[in-house]
Simulated assay, not measured.
Amino acid sequence: MTGLYPKINDHLYIRIASSDASEEEIEYRSRIAEMEEESFLIEIPLGENTGRLKKLHIGDELSVYFLTGEGIKNYFYTHVLGFKDDVIRMVRIRKPDEDSIVKVQRRSFLRVSGELELACKTQGGERFLVRTEDVSGGGLSFWTDGKIKLNVGEQLQCWLLIPYRSGAGEHAGFGAEIVRMKELENGRNLAMVKFTNISDGERQKIIRYCFERQFDFRNR
């Protein structure tokens, strides 16, 4: 299973955990220069849009992905351990456990359980507020009581409130279709929806939440 790790010269795409939401949106690119037993040595990251070098500090938490040949993104979390000065200055980051690297294919998304607030509007203009049962980059499910009548195939306009580990919160808006309804004995229903109309940026917000949740579960 050693094929899961990135190799020397592979590019890494990095976001830095920060309490500043605008800082967290910036994607940096780096390259693996050397491998060590417990760590990767990477070049100083460069802002993808700004072209500026990013100074990192020991302890900075990073959300990282690298691409495999088929264009599949492999995500992992890590943190800065220190630095090494050679011909160039390099940043030492912790090598993740192999089983904590998560592959994301475009069609299958990581699904995590989470009670998030979801505001919905039906095509008929009826609005309601519910809580999710689980969330992924491709869809979610939520609980309703018997008062809200929903049917398979129904289209909804939705706004999901996403809390991040940094304490920042964001809304993701999207169109969704109910693909399944499951009735439970206590009169509650579980509605499963798939996203039908969602921009890449909004989907990325949800995927990021899923990775943070996955990371939290693993660290318990």
Rank of each mutant, 00 (worst) to 15 (best):
I178Q: 05
V179F: 05
L156P: 00
F142D: 01
I178C: 03
G138Y: 07
C120M: 12
D97W: 12
D145F: 09
S136H: 08
K121E: 15
R107Y: 10
A176Q: 04
A172I: 07
D97H: 13
L156K: 09
C158H: 04
A176S: 06
S141W: 03
V130Y: 07
S108R: 15
D97S: 15
V112M: 10
E183Y: 05
L116R: 13
V135H: 09
G124V: 04
G175K: 14
G146S: 14
R111F: 04
G125P: 02
G114S: 14
C120V: 05
T132H: 10
E98H: 13
E126C: 04
K182I: 00
G175Q: 11
V130T: 02
L160Q: 07
V152P: 00
R127V: 02
A119C: 10
V102D: 03
E98F: 13
T122H: 13
S166Q: 06
R131V: 01
L116T: 05
K182F: 01
E117L: 15
D134N: 14
S108T: 01
T122W: 07
E115P: 02
C158Q: 02
E170P: 00
A119T: 11
C120K: 11
G139C: 11
Q105F: 11
S136V: 00
T122P: 07
S136E: 05
Q157L: 12
R127W: 05
A119Y: 15
F109E: 06
H171Y: 15
E185S: 13
I101A: 04
D134T: 03
E185C: 07
E133A: 08
D99K: 15
R180L: 01
G175V: 01
D99Q: 14
V130K: 13
E126L: 11
V104Y: 11
M181F: 00
R111E: 01
I148R: 06
T132E: 08
K121P: 03
L184P: 01
V179L: 08
R165P: 00
E117I: 06
E185Y: 05
V135S: 13
K103V: 04
F174Q: 09
S166M: 04
I101H: 10
K103L: 10
